[in-house]
Design a protein around this nucleic acid. Structure first.
Length: 483
RNA sequence: GGCCCCUUCGUCUAGUGGUUAGGACUCAGGACUUUCAUUCCUGCAACAGGGGUUCGAAUCCCCUAGGGGUCACCA
């Protein structure tokens, strides 16, 4: 006998009600990595049953953010597939068909209870320590009673008759999870406006799209028994579940806007690299068996395993993300890095040199000082600023020192001995100045740096001199020579 | 409040009965160096608490505490 294992099919199913959030991005990443690891299929589905909040713009921005992260999908909006449509709003007929089936089989029923009444009862139940479950008032209405209610103009919702037994499922990361009987009531599967609710639609979609593994956030664990009840009522085969832990903020509460930047889009704008973000996020609640942390997409795909996903939530650490981003910036080749930096330089209104080689030289000079691409602006300011003012008054004291003045004089004199200011010429010049003045080390270099750039810190001085050119160097130095 | 899940350095984590409890970020110190940065080295720092089980528990069991999630005509 040969055991045929079904090819893996996973889905990421965002609701288009805002930007792609870091937490959702992590879910998308794990889904995608798992699909690639298993040589399976990744599906993207848009869960837009919340008509109030869903927008086309959100959908577009989410798609764009996913692509920016480097995640693609084999089936879904804009790419199609054999199991569509991939937007819930386009699948209403399918839900209706199955709802009628449940209704005729007596597995679901119409409910005419007033929402605010129910809500009041719910609050009271919670307050008095009881289970806030639906009381079953409309469970057994006669056709006569229903007609009467309808005549009063009441619009019913449809509830699922919730079975009176416990639910257990095997979770790929949590292990066995059991929910005792009697804690859940007949929940709403179709709203008064005919739109299905999440816990209902999600099951039908997952089945229709032949999803084998449901990989999603921890916050859905408590929803799972409701969904299991739907699988059961519809007679559907259940998928495998994998609930990955939440991402928390610094204060250990669920990551949200109060914790700062939480949208993928924001990280893109700040100059994070998608590879770094993917790498960092995949390391939240998961680790490589090797202990390595800088992992290529290739390795992520090869090594990923739900068995190594931790069961506890992880605090998002922006500092470590920045460090990791810096690692990636330092590792990419200078031509690509330059391409990536150009938009940031433009935004800063810097006038960039026509000469590509020169631009790359500048970027190379600050590559190791960057953690995010945005840092290129501050790091290269010295090359693009019109006016190089002293950073602070204390520096002028350095420039007035007697030894400094000797150095500056000597520099101007030495510049007459060569035509072109190159890094090498600058280095040789400084060496000669050292011999001529007897000044060495920091006392020799620092005054030149300050006179040349107005600052104590910055890129390699010979590089600065070369890019400035002889004329500008001499002019800058002369500014600080006291007659 | 009920139910579900979780608990190793400040943070991310390794660890599946016997380890000096390892690594990474951060921080501190040092080396390199014309500055900053990079890089390298060193250091600080953890098994939530209490009971068991066992010759032996971070690892297994129970209780307590703490945290998170969820109980919607949101997803």
């Amino acid at each position: 006998m040969r055991i045929m294992t079904k090819p893996v099919r996973v889905r990421f199913a965002p609701s288009p009600t805002g930007n792609l959030h870091i937490g959702n991005a992590r879910t998308a990443i794990l889904n995608w990595i798992f699909a690639r690891h298993a040589k399976g299929t990744s599906v993207l589905r848009i869960e837009d049953t919340d008509l109030e909040r869903s927008t086309k713009e959100s959908e577009q921005s989410i798609l764009q953010d996913l692509r920016w992260l480097g995640l693609d999908w084999d089936e879904g909006p804009e790419v199609g597939g054999d199991f569509g449509p991939y937007r819930q709003s386009e699948r209403l007929e399918r839900y209706l068909y199955l709802t009628n089936k449940l209704l005729t089989e007596g597995k679901a029923f119409h409910c005419y209870c007033e929402p605010d009444e129910l809500e009041k009862a719910r609050q009271e139940a919670i307050k008095s320590g009881k289970q806030p479950v639906y009381n079953g008032r409309c469970r057994n209405l006669t056709a006569e009673q229903r007609r009467e209610l309808e005549q009063q103009g009441k619009k019913p919702v449809i509830r699922l008759r919730f079975p009176d037994h416990a639910f257990t499922f095997q979770d790929l990361v949590k292990g066995e999870v059991t929910f005792p009987a009697g804690d859940l009531g007949d929940f709403v599967i179709v709203r008064a406006d005919g739109i299905p609710t999440y816990n209902y639609a999600v099951v039908i979609d997952d089945v229709d799209m032949q999803i084998t593994h449901v990989v999603r956030g921890d916050d859905h664990v408590a929803n799972t028994p409701k969904q299991l009840a739907v699988y059961e009522a519809l007679g559907f085969e259940k998928p495998v579940f994998a609930h990955i832990p939440m991402i928390l903020g610094e204060d250990k509460t669920r990551l949200s806007k109060r914790h700062g930047a939480t949208s993928v889009d924001q990280y893109a704008q700040d100059g994070f690299l998608p590879q770094a973000l993917v790498n960092y996020l995949s390391l939240l609640s998961w680790s490589s068996e090797t202990g390595d942390e800088i992992l290529s997409l290739q390795r992520l795909i090869e090594e990923f395993d739900f068995g190594r996903v931790s069961r506890s939530p992880a605090v998002f650490d922006p500092v470590k993300l920045r460090w990791m981003n810096g690692m990636y910036i330092r590792s990419i080749d200078i031509s690509r890095l330059t391409d990536l930096c150009v938009p940031f330089l433009h935004k800063a209104d810097y006038v960039l040199p026509e000469n590509r080689e020169l631009l790359e030289k500048i970027v190379a000079g600050v590559q190791e000082k960057m953690e995010v691409l945005q840092d290129v602006v501050a790091a290269t300011r010295v090359f693009f600023a019109d006016e190089l003012e002293l950073e602070n008054e204390e520096l002028s004291a350095v420039l007035k020192k007697e030894s400094t003045q000797k150095v500056l004089w000597s520099f101007v004199r030495q510049c007459q001995t060569f035509q072109l200011m190159t890094g090498d010429n600058f280095r040789k010049t400084v060496k000669v100045i050292g011999k001529e003045t007897g000044v060495i080390g920091r006392d020799l270099w620092m005054p030149l740096r300050i006179a040349l750039t107005g600052q104590e810190h910055g890129p390699d001085l010979p590089l600065i001199a070369e890019i400035f050119g002889k004329e500008k160097c001499v002019a800058q130095i002369k500014k600080w020579i006291i007659e």
